[in-house]
Nucleic acid binder design. Structure first.
Length: 459
RNA sequence: UGCCCUGUAGCUCAGUGGUAGAGCAGGUGACUGUUAAUCACUUGGUCGUAGGUUCGAAUCCUACCGGGGCAGCCA
């Protein structure tokens, strides 16, 4: 007999004889001659209530079934007499598959997030984490759907890279060198020619540069994969290993890039609202009271757009003391970004045309000579969720910029080639998958939306 | 990397210089439909670790270790 998933059973239209349900016991309630089991199999948030009476053959042996145990129940799906569920299973046969003794750490009460992080292998059996990881799965699918349905091709950019300055933070080294006896060249330096790849290699911090090679071939592409940052960041929004979405679009300028970013965020949030209703209810009720309204808002209202220069004027005019002074040419700080999105506009807002001196070498210089065609999408509660730009497509300007930023013309010759042969205006953006998931679920700490989180000092 | 908070039972916490506590979980029993079931009884602690102050330290001081928050950097 094949098992029927609980999500299917609970959606049943009529009674069903002879069904098999299997899952883990969330709680057990005993009476003298019968007991109730709450069974969860992960297929949905809700549990299936099983009613087990003395008529079941091995009733006495079933005392060993406790919270956390895995069981099989064969029986009849019937309308429930009790309140709180429409269907329940009247058991004919019950089998204990795997017992869980009283050391099972998940109890039928609220645990702190900190405690649950210590048992990351068991926490997906808790309601909240089951919901988070079901939504994570759907969000991943939504992202692929959006791009596939809009003519983008998925490109698998490399995870191991020899580019040591892809424009983002510190990198993890990849090596097979014996760190106790490293090979040295005659002048005493590490001899990477004797390393596995015969040169220094790292875990990628971004697939953007490789993505540009494919955008200028296939037209519209996206990457969606793991990225690694060796930054010593201790915040609730940073992880050392996270997933990033990076679309790259040929024949595209900055305003069109912003159009794509906004359309993408709206589309994906709408899809989650449509397909994850039950799990979202949990977040709305127990995680973040303002979440439902915020998600609705993102889907329905247009995002605001302001230039960096206008944003600075808004911040200077604000009746507010800043910890970091506001001044044209300085980066916007967390407090500034949050003010713009949470208080001034009270909606997602896209800031564009940043000063060129605070941005990386590949961004396109605007005609004013002072700013670059860069943009950040800011959302309430998280801050920056998308960062993107139009890329410099003019060979001479790019080469000059690389020189200014100390980028090797030899190592990045391939990147310059994209401008040397059939160069086109193109643009793209990067979006942190976990940050989007935090925004969608209202979960405040990035460690709680990653199955097994890697952060400084913890792996 | 800087600043701040925190560590007491399996879990969540109270206890601020005078013999270690509660709720939940666990155990035993009761109960004919429960819903974080209920009721009665009950097991459980080198108070993170190491020093120090004191007649006396969970409580005060120092160091180390663990957890967390904010900021910087970014996604």
């Amino acid at each position: 007999m094949n098992r029927t998933e609980i999500v299917t059973l609970l959606a049943s239209e009529s009674e069903r004889e002879g069904i098999l349900a299997q899952g883990w016991v969330r709680t057990r309630r005993d009476s003298k001659d019968f007991f109730f089991l709450e069974l969860n199999d992960g297929s949905c948030l809700k549990n299936l209530q099983a009613v087990v009476t003395r008529d079941v053959p091995n009733f006495e042996e079933l005392k060993a079934i406790s919270t956390g145990a895995s069981v099989s129940v064969v029986g009849k799906l019937i309308a429930s007499q009790g309140k709180g569920q429409s269907w329940e299973i009247q058991a004919n046969e019950v089998t204990l598959i795997g017992a869980a003794d009283d050391s099972f750490p998940l109890q039928k009460k609220r645990h702190s997030m900190e405690f649950l992080r210590e048992i990351s292998h068991l926490r997906p059996r808790a309601n909240l984490f089951g919901a988070i990881f079901r939504v994570r799965s759907r969000l991943s699918f939504s992202i692929h759907r959006f791009f596939q349905e809009h003519g983008f091709f998925h490109v698998h950019t490399p995870i191991i890279t020899s580019s040591d300055c892809e424009g983002a933070g510190d990198m993890f080294k990849v090596t097979t060198i014996d760190i106790d006896k490293p090979p040295r060249s005659e002048d005493g330096f590490l001899d990477f020619s004797r390393d596995f790849f015969a040169q220094p290699t790292y875990l990628t911090v971004s697939g953007q540069l490789e993505g540009e090679a494919f955008a200028t071939s296939l037209g519209k592409i996206y990457t969606f994969g793991p990225t690694f940052r060796a930054e010593n960041s201790h915040t609730s929004r940073h992880a050392s290993e996270f997933w990033m979405v990076e679309p790259e679009i040929a024949f595209c300028d900055l305003q069109q890039d912003i159009d794509w970013a906004e359309k993408f965020v709206k589309w994906v949030v709408k899809d989650i609202l449509d397909t994850c209703k039950e799990d979202l209810e949990l977040f709305f009720n127990f995680v973040d009271k303002g979440l439902q309204e915020r998600l609705q808002f993102v889907v329905e209202r247009p995002f605001h757009r302001v230039s960096y220069t206008e944003a600075v004027e808004i911040l200077l005019a604000a009746d507010r003391k800043w910890e970091y002074p506001v001044e044209w040419g300085a980066n916007l700080q967390s407090e500034h970004e949050r003010y713009l999105t949470e208080e001034h506009f009270k909606s997602p807002v896209t800031v564009y045309d940043y000063p060129k001196d605070i941005k990386p070498f590949y961004m396109r210089i605007n005609d004013d000579g002072k700013t670059v065609a860069a943009m950040d999408v800011l959302v309430p509660g998280i801050g920056e969720i998308v960062g993107g730009s139009q890329r410099e497509e003019r060979l001479e300007v790019l080469l000059e910029n690389m020189k200014k930023h100390g980028i090797s013309e030899v190592d990045y010759g391939w990147y310059a080639d994209l401008r040397r042969y059939g160069s086109v205006p193109h643009a793209g953006f990067g979006l942190g998958f976990e940050r989007l998931l935090m925004f969608v679920t209202g979960v405040a700490n990035i460690r709680d939306v990653i199955p097994f989180a890697r952060t400084p000092g913890s792996a």
